[in-house]
């Protein structure tokens, strides 16, 4: 039945170079084949192309705040009055202290992601800042945490002024 003279007769599955090489190439291919499938679950091109949001600031009056959507998240844009700016510059916030100057690019405009840093609820606007309805975290008009369970200040998204009255939120890749 089996040829006797061949050395690998007794064990036709004997590991040798050819077997190892074939196995390695096949294995690499299987791993590679996963790549398109894994990638297909990442955000699609049309989602990525909405990764930035343009906002016209002209419509926001001093003292008013507007919520816009950026990457599916709310972003608060607060047009601060001089009085509010002065108030904010006078303090360093609460448990995550930082100067107000580092929270803004232009003192009149505060741009922060409107998700409570505790568990991601959307804080509601109060005159002196924001109050999170879920667990009562309180933020000031610089988006800094004053009290409540939230650990850090409201996050600053990347943004740039396209003109005096227009900002682009997000990293401009297109």
């Amino acid at each position: 039945m089996l040829k006797k003279e061949k050395s690998d007769v007794k064990n036709p599955t004997r590991r040798d170079f050819l077997t190892t090489a074939t196995g390695a190439v096949a294995g690499a291919g299987l791993v590679g084949a996963c790549w398109p499938f894994i990638q297909s679950m990442n955000p699609t091109m049309d989602v990525l192309s909405k990764a930035t949001t343009e906002v016209d600031l002209g419509v926001i009056k001093p003292g008013e705040s507007k919520t816009v959507e950026w990457q599916g998240k709310p972003v608060f844009i607060l047009h601060r009055t001089d009085k509010q700016i002065d108030e904010m510059r006078a303090s360093n916030g609460g448990k995550d202290p930082i100067e107000d100057e580092k929270r803004v690019d232009v003192p009149n405009w505060l741009v922060v992601v409107g998700l409570c840093t505790h568990l991601g609820c959307v804080p509601s606007r109060k005159e002196e800042g924001w109050l999170c309805p879920c667990h009562g975290s309180v933020y000031d008009n610089s988006g800094r945490i004053l009290k409540g369970p939230a650990p850090t200040n409201l996050e600053r998204p990347p943004y740039q002024f396209l003109s005096e009255s227009k900002i682009l939120i997000g990293n401009n890749k297109v």
Binding site: P36, Q39, S40, N42, T44, M45, D46, V47
Partner: peptide
């Protein structure tokens, strides 16, 4: 068409 154009490797799948 969304799969064919926007989804990563959607055209392949």
């Amino acid at each position: 068409e969304h799969i064919m154009r926007d989804v990563n490797y959607g055209w392949l799948i």
